[in-house]
Amino acid sequence: MIPYGRQSISQEDIDQVVQVLQSDYLTQGPAVPRFEEAVAAYCGAAHALATNSATAALHVACLALGVGPGDRVWTSPTTFVASANCAIYCGAEVDFVDIDPHTYNMSVACLAEKLCHARQNGTLPKVVIPVHLCGQSCDMEAIHALSREYGFRIVEDASHAIGGRYQGQPVGSCRFSDVTVFSFHPVKIITTGEGGMALTNDSVLANLMRQYRSHGITSDRTEMAPRDAGEIWNYQQIRLGYNYRMTDIQAALGLSQMGRLDEFVHARHRIAAVYGQALSGLPITLPFQQASTFSSYHLYPIRVDQERCGKDQRTVYQQLHQAGIKVNLHYIPVYRQPYFERMGFPTGYCPEAERYHRETLSLPMYATLTVDQQNTVIAVLKEIVNS
């Protein structure tokens, strides 16, 4: 069986985790700050805050930006549900902007058109969450320019994109956003088992996110409410927060994995190049890469051209699975999920996202995919779509 994605764990990773297990701190110790510093330094961001998932990072980012009831948050429909759920957790309304037919990221043209209508209707978003699908950055400079015109804040959902670059700078630098969020799930570029991180250049946002990830608690005396001088107050809960902390065990794994991040991304590019050459000319569409971006290649999506292939996506999916190649779907449009349909989102709401969903399969893509495994994927796919 060849999965669509998997982690790569080295002996050094294991040794680093064992060191924490044998130390005095399994959580809230020194490993988490070291991991945060390493990611911030790699990305060129001022602040990084580790969390127990990217979902938690998205949630605290929205909270820190003041998202609440009566607010609107827009995101891409072609993403995991967490990109939208984080707004709903805050009591806000969520809406979706259709995708670009080439990059599969949020369409700047659709965003601009939707913003124009929203201004006329008094329904502008407070926050927009562009999603860097498959590891390729959205056109962040253009989205940032729209934010200046229409007054919304930006959270980059870069769950797929650590190790990628945009306009020559690392994704996560927050040059064109308020916050960037990474995921460290096992199928992502690097892993902490489960885990996420929020990066920002804004010290106020960083402080708020730190509080929200740990019960709303502060130990900073300048933030504490006055109390009787005879009482000991070494911390106070000053707002409602959550237990979204990352453990030192997870952080040790993440810090070790950071040492191989560039190696992982290079391997993914090598695999993508082989796919690109071997699959060219088949009745499928291969991933398009913008010149201004350097993808981390978390995913390698192909689109099945039913008219040329004579087979639909479902048939190709089933035949690949029968051959032991566990391709996947990334993603069903979020608003097609039953929970969101009950909010009133109809089929056809974002037509490009729905076309993408009906045609796309994610081929196996991970740093340890062997030459033999990739050759098997290529040979089986060729046989299926050419027969």
Rank of each mutant, 00 (worst) to 15 (best):
I332P: 00
Q374Y: 09
Q7V: 02
A46S: 15
V128E: 05
R213M: 11
D228N: 13
K326I: 00
T55E: 13
E263P: 03
V187D: 03
N375E: 10
P30G: 00
I332L: 00
M246L: 15
G163N: 06
G195P: 14
V334E: 01
L146Y: 08
V274R: 06
L282A: 06
E141P: 01
K114S: 13
A61Q: 11
A56M: 12
I143L: 02
T51I: 03
S159K: 04
E383W: 02
G163F: 13
S219M: 09
D15S: 03
P287A: 02
G172D: 01
S256G: 07
S137L: 13
S203E: 10
L261R: 09
Q374C: 06
Q16V: 01
G216P: 06
Y89N: 15
A229F: 14
H59V: 06
Y331Q: 06
H330S: 02
Y242L: 01
V274L: 04
H160L: 09
R153V: 14
Q322C: 08
G216I: 05
M343C: 10
I189W: 13
L329V: 11
V334S: 00
R72K: 12
S23G: 09
N207M: 05
V385W: 05
R227Q: 12
K311W: 07
N121M: 13
E37G: 02
T370N: 02
N386M: 09
C309K: 02
T79E: 06
L320M: 13
A272F: 08
I129V: 15
P364S: 01
A198P: 14
A198M: 05
V67P: 06
H269L: 07
I129G: 03
T55P: 03
A353F: 04
E194V: 04
V377W: 07
G230V: 15
L26G: 15
D262S: 14
Q318G: 14
F96N: 09
G348L: 01
S203P: 15
A64C: 07
A57I: 08
L133C: 04
F345E: 11
G29H: 06
F340Q: 04
L26V: 04
V128H: 11
Q211M: 13
R175F: 05
A161E: 10
H269E: 12
G281E: 04
T192E: 08
